[in-house]
Design a binder for these strands. Structure first.
Lengths: 116, 116
DNA sequence: GAAAGATGATACGGATGTGAAACGATCGGG
DNA sequence: CCCGATCGTTTCACATCCGTATCATCTTTC
């Protein structure tokens, strides 16, 4: 079933989650990087640079650089497609899964604590 | 009453909202800027630089620069406190309210469209 | 096999954010 | 009245991100 949320609750949810992220001085991803990470983990593989660029409506260098940054943090990994060596397959990592698990827990918790 | 949300739904919600923001090439605020904006609009005034810095756990220059950026976009405005002229009172703007209204609508819509 | 096309990475110039430190303006207690 | 404390801003050096254009590599087509 869908989730019923009122506008004021939506804003409070965003504030609460953002606040906890900022305060923890944790991994600080760009909005684009976050969307890329979520797409990789939520949608069925395989994921390629051009596919992600098309989905987000941004240029390929944006994806490449985001993958560089997140690869440095071990949130995603890349490897060449053996079938077509022009392609790069973007893969999930244990650390990336853990990061999103913790993130979603934080969102769920904040949602549960919302005032009526 | 509180909002019941499952982890996978939380992730899909964040992806959907982030995706719509990225695609629209709309105003793209830093996570910190967004939290500051939300705090200004959700919590009771008055808001000061040091108050926001303390709440977010960041340094004052971060707040000053975020206000510079958002002031440029006319999302917030600043004015000196007449009572104590060292203080700066941060105020809401029509454009800021409109921006958050649209944003929350987008969140609510995405939440309503979530799969079970 | 050579040329054309596709894919991801890189170079460049510009814009913006950050932390640490220092600064000018203002208030307030002695 | 004055000197320390407070508040917001600015400066500096550094890092990151962006879009455009270009590049190297690989595949497909003829």
């Amino acid at each position: 079933m869908s989730v019923r949320l009122r506008p004021i609750q939506a804003l409070r949810l965003w504030q609460e989650v953002g606040l906890s992220m900022v305060r923890r001085h944790a991994v600080d991803l760009t909005q684009r990087q976050m969307v890329i990470l979520l797409t990789i983990y939520l949608e069925p593989p395989p994921h390629t640079v051009r596919g992600l660029a098309a989905k987000l409506g941004v240029t390929k260098p944006v994806i490449t650089r985001a993958l560089d940054a997140m690869g440095e943090l071990d949130l995603v990994s890349r490897r060449r497609d053996p079938a077509d060596r022009r392609n790069v397959i973007i893969q999930r990592t244990v650390r990336g899964s853990l990061f999103l698990d913790e993130f979603s827990d934080r969102v769920v918790e904040a949602a549960g604590a919302l005032a009526p």
